[in-house]
Nucleic acid binder design. Structure first.
Length: 475
RNA sequence: GGCGGCAUAGCCAAGUGGUAAGGCAGAGGUCUGCAACACCUUCACCACCAGUUCAAAUCUGGUUGUCGCCUCCA
């Protein structure tokens, strides 16, 4: 039974979707004015893995992630570079989608862009005005926070206290200091759309409410994003959506904790961010993915080169196991005499062990998606497999190992083909060198043997001596 | 000022009432021509104080430290 921590109730709750076989999930996407940083990558990775788990549980997941493609920072960047905003936006959306692919993120069911959804956004604002939740002043439209009685239910904030906060600028065209903007009037040099209130563009919060409504309907199962979005973004979304639809909006609100750098929040505005692109190229995107899933999504996670090195070494252990297992199975194909059909007592015990790994793996993920705990089970399985393949040859058991191991890795999306550095050598050439090295070893000409090994390593080929022969892989 | 999170080995990180998963790094060993990979062994009284309990890292109160939200932010 899956339980998730719901920010709305501050409790772990049993996950029961609105419909028995489908889950509607909305994750707030990035504002596209730069390549995404590794902090942006955390919700992307974590909620992708969560989605995979739901799929594994038999749900069809309708997964929507938007791109915010109209925003002050985008306009600023366009002006700086003397380009049209659409040019900036198209470029960064393309690059962000590439980053997601590099992270082995499943494509979303829909990736709506704000600028394509203006009709829905304007229509929603009109309805808010009609229902008395919003008012227009001087080309702006504001949401009237004190009209929505549940305002603050997600962030547990009380209007009066927010009002007392010193950091809120008093804007005298607003009826209430906490009212937030739904539509802002056009300024010089800014892109604009025509609305009943004049030329302008939408406020940030209404965009997600409108896109979520259009692509998923009035009610959704899961709304997810970074914890900093709880207030005001998600709080305002609830106000807008529930005011218009008259229904409870999202059943579960999931928020990931931050990825910090030097124990400080990383953000575009603080300027202490690292681009996913750079980190991914240096340590491998699969390492980034592993790193993020190796901690619980609601725990703060610190980032450093040292930690990435460590994560890379950890992941290598899983990769090596996968390769060794495949190698042994491959080897067994050509060698029928070694295939035993009877299980020894030890092998029977291992089958029981696999069952227990399965149970523990699912128990971990059922408990608020504890991917860190689940990964620890993978490592236990790795150890068991590594021990067995040293001597064990039972094909049925080996296949059971493989099935379980691959399944665990698939649920988290952990092992996938990453870009392989081109080597000028063909497989045939490599095998040739390996044969030469083996011959040299046989003649105790170790100098030549080592020379060949070094040569191959320089060409990004790693070789490994095993009982069954020499393995190689491109790295 | 208001609200919230966190504090577990050298590092990272699970565990939320019955005497501490897992990974990296380290040490010793097996394997190897040497290495890499792998395997075996080894490595924590859980920030501090008080309390509840037969029993607490785990619950309660307090202290200290730390991070975040209240403003664009994943």
């Amino acid at each position: 039974m899956l339980k998730v921590y719901n920010t709305l109730t501050k409790k772990k709750e049993e996950f029961i979707p609105l419909s028995t076989d489908e889950v509607k999930m909305y994750v707030c996407g990035p504002t596209v004015y730069n390549l995404i940083h590794i902090g942006n990558a955390r919700p992307i990775v974590v909620f992708d893995a969560f989605r995979r788990y739901l799929i594994d549980q038999g749900y069809k997941v309708n997964f929507v992630q938007n791109f915010t493609d109209v925003d002050d920072k985008i306009i600023k960047k366009a002006n700086e570079q003397g380009k049209d905003t659409s040019e900036i936006v198209d470029f960064y959306i393309k690059e962000t989608l590439q980053d997601m692919e590099n992270l082995n993120v499943l494509p979303a069911t829909a990736n709506p862009r704000v600028t394509n959804e203006m009709d829905e956004i304007i229509a929603m604002i009109e309805q808010l005005i009609e229902k008395g939740y919003a008012y227009a002043v001087c080309g702006s439209v504001f949401f009237s926070t004190d009209k929505f009685k549940d305002y603050g239910k997600l962030s547990k904030k009380v209007l009066e206290e927010l009002e007392a906060g010193a950091r809120i600028e008093i804007d005298n065209i607003k009826a209430h200091p906490m009212d937030f903007v739904l539509w802002k009037p056009k300024k010089d040099g800014e892109p604009y759309w025509i609305s009943p209130w004049g030329k302008g563009r939408p406020g940030w919060h209404i965009e997600c409410s409108a896109m979520s409504k259009k692509y998923l309907g009035d009610q959704i199962d899961i709304h997810a994003g970074g914890e900093d979005l709880i207030f005001p973004h998600h709080e305002n979304e609830i106000a807008q959506s529930e005011a218009v639809n008259g229904k409870h909006y999202s059943k579960y609100w999931l928020h990931n904790s931050f990825l910090n750098i030097d124990n400080k929040k990383m953000s575009k505005s603080l300027g202490n961010f690292m681009l996913l692109r750079d980190v991914g190229e240096e340590f491998g995107y699969d390492t980034v993915r592993f790193f993020m899933l190796a901690a619980h999504y609601r725990s703060p996670l610190n980032f450093s080169d040292k930690l990435m090195e460590s994560a890379k070494a950890s992941l290598l252990r899983i990769k090596n196991c996968s390769e060794d297992l495949n190698f042994v199975l491959d080897h067994l194909k050509n060698e029928s005499k070694n295939i035993s059909t009877e299980f020894t007592q030890d092998e029977e015990n291992l089958l029981t062990q696999i069952d227990s790994y399965n149970t523990r793996f699912y128990t971990a993920l059922d408990d608020d998606f504890n991917s860190a705990d689940a990964i620890s089970i993978i490592f236990e399985l790795v150890k068991t497999i590594n021990s067995y393949i040293k001597t064990g040859k039972n094909k049925t058991l080996l296949l059971t190992f493989k099935e379980t191991f691959d399944h665990f890795n698939d649920v988290l999306g952990l092992l996938y083909e990453t870009e392989i550095k081109a080597s000028s050598l063909t497989d045939e050439e490599i095998l040739n060198y390996i044969a030469k090295r083996s011959a040299a070893k046989k003649n105790k000409d170790f100098a030549t043997a080592d020379q060949i090994r070094t040569f191959l390593e320089q060409n990004n080929i790693q070789i490994k001596d095993t009982r069954e022969g020499v393995q190689f892989k491109r790295v």
